Computed example of a mutant assay.
Amino acid sequence: MYKVLSCLLFIGIIALSGCGPTTQVTRIDSDTVVDLSGRWNDTDSRMVAETMITDCLSHVWINNHNQTSGERPVVIVGSIRNKSNEHIATQTFISDIEKAFINSGKVRPVSDKSERDEIREERADQSEHAAIETIKRMGRELGADYMMTGEINTIEDREGGRQIVFYQTNLTLTNIESNEKVWIGEEKIKKYIGRKKFKM
């Protein structure tokens, strides 16, 4: 009798374990817009960056620079601070900004501080180990004319299973030599998040 009960218990455990939730993964196009939680996501990052850089490059500062220097302005993206109450991958947003700058063809973006340090180490290493005709010289970096900085803020309003999340991104472009702010832009996103309650 004991063996029969043990066998039935074992079969029951196996049966129950097979009834658990399963995970299904489907690959989708990286440009597909998917909002699961309503939080800031890759689509928000890309769209905000593209919209704001398009606006930035349509203002008078770039024409003034081109007329004065005769060359495309050199731009560096500085810190983008996350002042929201959620985790936002600001480095991804910075990369989206740099990509929008590069794709415009109107400015010359340069590497930020962390990237420069790594590149300088490589040049120093080349001076010791690379063939003379392939060594890249020191002191040939492009000095940036302008720096872009900014921040991302959120405001939330929540009631029951409903929630409104408001994102505001502010970016500023500053002339590094004169400290003059030549462009200030903002972009807003408002999301309604409704959560259904399960009925037993």
Rank of each mutant, 00 (worst) to 15 (best):
E159Q: 11
T149F: 01
E187M: 15
M138P: 03
H129M: 07
R140Q: 11
G160V: 06
D157L: 07
I152A: 06
I184H: 14
D157H: 08
G185P: 13
I135N: 05
I184Q: 15
E151S: 12
E186M: 09
V182A: 13
M148V: 14
M147E: 10
M148N: 06
S178F: 01
N179K: 01
R158T: 08
L173W: 11
I164N: 11
T169W: 10
R137C: 00
I184V: 15
I176A: 04
I135W: 04
G150L: 12
E187Q: 15
E177V: 05
L142R: 01
Q126S: 02
T174G: 12
D157E: 12
I135C: 04
V165W: 00
E177A: 10
S178R: 05
R140E: 10
E151A: 09
G150T: 09
R120D: 10
K188Q: 11
E122V: 09
G139Y: 01
A124R: 03
M147K: 08
E118L: 13
E180R: 12
R162N: 15
E187C: 14
Q168W: 10
E118N: 11
G150S: 08
E187V: 15
K188V: 11
G160H: 08
A130L: 11
R158K: 11
M148H: 06
G143H: 00
G185S: 14
E187K: 15
L171M: 13
D117I: 13
R123D: 00
G160R: 09
M147A: 09
D125S: 04
N175Q: 06
T134H: 05
R123G: 00
I176G: 06
I135V: 13
L171G: 08
E159R: 10
I119H: 07
S127I: 07
N170C: 08
S178G: 02
E187I: 14
I155G: 03
E121V: 04
D145G: 06
E177P: 03
E186Y: 09
Y167L: 03
R158Y: 03
E177C: 01
T134N: 07
E118G: 05
D145P: 04
E187T: 14
I132W: 02
R123M: 01
L173I: 14
A130E: 10
F166H: 14
G160L: 06
V165D: 01
D157V: 10
A144M: 00
E141G: 02
Q163I: 04
Q168I: 13
E141D: 12
D125I: 00
R158Q: 10
A130G: 03
A144Y: 00
I119C: 08
T174K: 14
G139F: 01
M138S: 05
V165K: 06
L171P: 12
E187F: 15
I155Y: 08
V182I: 15
T174Y: 12
K188M: 10
K181N: 15
E151W: 07
R158M: 03
